[in-house]
Design a protein around this nucleic acid. Structure first.
Lengths: 146, 146
DNA sequence: ACTCAATGATACAATTATTACAATTTAGGA
DNA sequence: TCCTAAATTGTAATAATTGTATCATTGAGT
């Protein structure tokens, strides 16, 4: 089983360190279930080549995620999303305030050059779509089963 | 890929600040397609040595150009002429990007247990705050006059 | 003399580069 | 099957390069 693609969007202009961006986006994709427990991430060298950065920078991000028990780095094997995310991780994710989450989102969108009007409109659109989907069939599908 | 030569002609007696001259000439060379998107500029220290000036002065010029989105300065990596993708591709990528970003944000917020109404309201609030902040305290590059 | 923009000096943070190394997997051959 | 060598993976250490932040100095205009 090969590694996930792990499409990351780096913004070299954001002022946020690259390793921080990697950390944040892996966390985000885990929270959004784009990444799931057990998934294998790209090797430090592969991801580095993909992102055109030095593999030490990837290793740094992986090390931070590893210390946070979000991923498990195994020398000679690879890196994997932790099978059972420790309580404090999901707890932290849940306790992350909506305010902070929203600020991060808006700032990132602004950073990418979108206007406040565009952002507002897109949020309206997506919430509308989400709302419609919820009414029809997806109401209970958000909870993780098993 | 080494940096561009970037031959600049400074006039120390013109009364025009050095950093302004650098800003203007980079803009000019970009307009004349001597510089092209993606080109790497000399490092602040290399250009400073070449021009026999302090590297802070180059850094200041680069900062102004960076704020004007003309170049992208990246700590530890270098400075580059901003990439501007072809318009027809650009618009699609922009929309996909914002769409993806917004979807992630909304999904994460929903997952944390917030309602669509709360999310909408928070986005409105934060964009309003951001808008106010921009009007008051954002310093603009006064030296880039036309 | 005062003021303030321009410039200089210094310390700092992020990234890259290079190299070496240990653990693990993989591939082949005996 | 078992063993070994090579390849792959993450780890680590160090130095060098790059832009950033902050404060000090300078100098021309008033």
């Amino acid at each position: 089983m090969p590694e996930k693609k792990l499409t990351l969007q780096l913004d070299f202009h954001s002022g946020l360190p690259i390793y921080t961006q990697i950390v944040n986006q892996v966390q985000s994709q885990l929270a959004n279930e784009i990444l799931k427990p057990g998934d294998q991430l790209p090797t430090v060298r592969a991801l580095a080549e993909e992102l055109r950065i030095n593999f030490n920078t990837v290793a740094r991000a992986y090390r931070i995620l590893d210390e946070a028990r979000i991923i498990s780095t195994q020398q000679g094997r690879g890196t994997f999303i932790t099978e059972i995310p420790p309580p404090e991780v999901s707890e932290r994710l849940r306790n992350e305030s909506l305010s902070e989450l929203t600020l991060r989102f808006i700032n990132e969108a602004l950073r990418l050059g979108f206007s406040e009007r565009e952002i507002s409109q897109m949020v309206r659109d997506k919430i509308q779509q989400e709302s419609n989907r919820g009414e029809t069939s997806r109401r209970e599908s958000r909870q993780v089963k098993k």
